[in-house]
């Protein structure tokens, strides 16, 4: 697959949050009330109308302050928990660029994807008492609509420092080796093979990323193990009952000698 990726070189990020603004602008997302969290972080969290958010992380490194900038956003996994969880055909799809996209026309509002995501990304637009809200799930689309026109995503387009960089997924090995020379860790979601790749100076947790990202265990057991096993068990059960009726037969008390036997 000629996939694309967003490369996030965290050492180049200055925390300007132009990506947040560009994302809101391109996707016509409404504003969210800000809140003082004691950092520059805002809006408070991802939301149905906030697809990306810069994480401002203050950590102590060898007795000194390190100020790290991470990004909370859809990672566009190649093994996507949201897609595993989704029960509606076609509601969450992956296109040729590697963009994992929720189609709100098909989304039924079950919220399974919200809890199936290893990175806690999809958000639900709940219809409130005043009737606002559409009861659908939303998240970053990798600007698949811009990609279709040969454009790059709004966030990478606008990034003034080149911290967000849109490129071919195939270039990852090359980028990884040059990052290693700079003493940076490549974070590509491990087995999830995310199409958003971070270059990190510190530990993943210091950027708000899970150290060992994986599809949540219950979601895996539910969708990958239990779902097919359950169908097999139910079909086997039906055949088992038919087999019992055919080979052993009903226990007919009322006919014959009262002891039963084959009818």
């Amino acid at each position: 697959m000629a996939g694309k990726m967003i490369l996030i070189d965290t050492t180049k990020c200055t925390g300007c949050r132009a990506c947040q603004v560009a994302c809101k602008q391109w996707n016509s997302l409404s504003a969210v009330a800000t809140r003082n969290l004691g950092t520059h972080e805002n809006p408070p969290d991802l939301a149905y109308n906030t697809y990306t958010k810069i994480i401002f992380s203050e950590v102590e490194k060898n007795g000194e302050l390190a100020w790290y900038f991470g990004q909370h956003r859809c990672m566009h996994c190649e093994d996507a928990g949201c897609m595993k969880a989704c029960p509606v055909p076609g509601a969450i799809t992956r296109d040729a660029n590697g963009a994992v996209v929720i189609n709100q026309e098909l989304c039924t509002g079950c919220k399974y994807c919200v809890f199936g995501c290893p990175f806690n990304v999809p958000r639900y637009d709940n219809k409130n008492a005043e009737g606002y809200g559409v009861d659908k799930a939303f998240k970053c689309t990798l600007c698949f609509d811009r990609l279709a026109m040969g454009e790059q995503p709004a966030c990478t387009k606008t990034c003034p420092t080149g911290a967000l960089f849109f490129t071919e997924k195939a270039k990852l090995p090359e980028i990884a080796s040059s990052a290693a020379q700079r003493g940076l860790k490549v974070y590509d979601g491990g087995s999830l093979k995310t199409n958003v790749v971070f270059l990190l100076k510190g530990e993943p947790e210091e950027y708000g990323l899970p150290a060992k990202p994986a599809i949540p265990t219950p979601t895996f057991l539910w969708r990958t193990i239990m779902k097919p096993l359950g169908i097999a068990a139910m079909v086997a059960g039906i055949f088992g009952v038919i087999a019992h009726y055919s080979y052993v037969g009903p226990k007919d008390i009322e006919e014959g000698d009262g002891k039963g036997g084959k009818h």
Partner: peptide, 16 residues
């Protein structure tokens, strides 16, 4: 997350 798994697992059990 466990609620979805349990609902599914017990559904299969009840069906059988």
């Amino acid at each position: 997350q466990w609620m979805y798994f349990l609902h599914n697992a017990f559904f299969v059990g009840l069906m059988l």
